[in-house]
């Protein structure tokens, strides 16, 4: 399969990339790793007239902690997240999520920004960024704006990104002491999209109550979901088994999966309940273990 013809540009600055995007409007697409875009083009699900490749734009591939955030450039490859010692040590939820994405070759090309901006509810980073309460930094002709991950995913393959804007970075709040996170993904075979997956990030206060809870759900609605009711039920409370079960039940009620080849809607709801429990328990163990 060969993609339909298009014009290719590889700008060397963000300003140039934005100018190209303005010039060509919605018929242009940003090319990051291309591992969602190119397969869709080969299948004629997308036929952009212009591809604007960000690979030569400097400053989009940094991984660093600053001002209480982990800053990830949008062009950071998945493999770089997987191999970065800081992420493995301090951001276990992000590390685990990345490991579950596709396969090693795809992770060598795929980018964290592309995984988010694509707006596919089956992608794994959105739920995790919602669990972390991450911020997405977006640049356009009107300047820079910051969009909370929890407000970024509007509809099926539709995000809050305007057609003339580029996602440049993701900011994940650095977790305080006594924090932990975990990603639980059920898949039919390695590399598949999730049948269902749950991201949990939490922090414990001195008295053992939950000072922070973020729960995100993958591929169980037309958009990635933030499990708001489950989080509110746990926030400020002691993480007793009963309360965890109740929050997991709420997550299974609040998602909206469709029956498909990966299972019935009923099965997926049951899996959300169980995966929420498992992810929460592992996140809690990490928080109690001092991570």
């Amino acid at each position: 399969m060969i993609p339909p013809p298009f014009t290719y540009a590889a700008p060397t600055s963000l300003e140039e990339a934005l100018a190209l995007l303005q010039q060509h409007g919605p018929m242009a697409k940003i090319l990051a790793g291309g591992h969602s875009l190119l397969p869709m083009m080969k299948l004629r699900l997308l036929e952009p007239e212009v591809l604007i490749d960000l690979r030569r734009v400097p400053g989009l591939a940094d991984i660093r902690e600053e001002n209480g955030y982990l800053h990830l450039g949008a062009m950071v490859r998945e493999v770089e997240l997987e191999e970065h010692p800081l992420i493995r040590a301090k951001y276990p939820l992000l590390y685990e999520t990345t490991r579950w994405i596709a396969d090693p070759q795809v992770r060598n090309m795929g980018t964290v920004g592309g995984n988010l901006a694509h707006g596919d509810p089956g992608n794994d980073h959105p739920a995790t960024m919602m669990a972390y309460d991450a911020q997405l930094v977006v640049v356009g002709p009107r300047g820079e704006r910051v969009i909370p991950a929890r407000e970024f995913f509007l509809d099926f393959y539709t995000t809050a990104l305007e057609p003339d804007e580029i996602l440049t970075a993701i900011r994940i709040p650095t977790p305080p002491p006594r924090s932990g996170g975990a990603y639980e993904k059920l898949e039919r075979k390695v590399g598949d999209y999730a049948t269902a997956a749950v991201a949990v990030q939490l922090s414990l206060a001195e008295d053992g109550t939950l000072s922070y809870v973020g729960i995100g759900l993958t591929n169980v609605a037309h958009v990635p979901l933030f499990a708001a009711r489950s989080c509110a039920h746990l926030q400020g409370q002691r993480p007793t088994p009963e309360r965890i079960d109740e929050a997991a039940q709420m997550a299974s009620e609040d998602c909206n999966p469709r029956s498909d080849l990966r299972g019935s809607a009923e099965y997926k709801r049951a899996m959300v309940r169980e995966l929420t429990r498992r992810a929460f328990r592992r996140a809690l163990e990490r928080a109690q273990g001092g991570q």
């Binding site: 993609p3 291309g34 190119l38 490749d53 690979r55 493999v79 795809v106 090309m109």
Partner: peptide
């Protein structure tokens, strides 16, 4: 040095 699936990489990339 990185393994990639060459059916999903453009030559220009």
């Amino acid at each position: 040095g990185r393994a990639v699936k060459s059916c999903t990489v453009l030559t220009v990339q």
